[in-house]
Amino acid sequence: MKTMGRLLALCLAAGLSQTASAQDIDNLTAAYTEDGKYFTEDDVPTYNVQEDGTIDWPTYSGFRRYHSECHVCHGPEGEGSSYAPALKTSAIDMDYYDFVDVVVNGRKRVGSAENSVMPAFGDNPNVMCYLDDIYVYLKARGADVVPRGRPAKKEPKHEVIRETENDCLGT
């Protein structure tokens, strides 16, 4: 629940301070790491790929959670489908806070030519507890630094990540 609360706070903040567009700033490069997670200069979660291809745990976790919660509509590996858009592109094009907002609150595009509805996942712990993971995985896919398929090498799961996960899922 701690994480859910934090995410909610982030969403509220997003509504108040809409700043520079995603293209103007480096939204990809990791500037620092904390407890097994990586962040940009602007404190936005991001991926980290080492020279030998080892990826950070959250990106690996995002691969798993994406293929549980998202791929039945958005297709494998964020590639998009006949049903829903390619999220690997969305994760690059959209601001982190906008991305979170759409996942939490959903979005509807319904008209004569389009019947596209993203559901609100705000009360789904299987998504919300892993939202940053899914986000960094899709960003890594969009930046083409993680290939399609199952990531081969990953960092171990940090103890803090494990604790946070258990808190969030309530297990």
């Binding site: 691969f63 798993r64 959670r65 549980s68 494998p76 996942f121 009360d123 712990p125 299987n126 398929g149």
Partner: peptide, 23 residues
């Protein structure tokens, strides 16, 4: 396929899948 099951919790009206697939 490859199939990796993992724990999920149930929320009414939300997906309840609990596995990662590659085909």
């Amino acid at each position: 396929m490859d199939y990796e099951p993992f724990r999920v919790s149930y929320t009414a009206g939300q997906p309840y899948v609990g596995a990662t697939l590659a085909m």
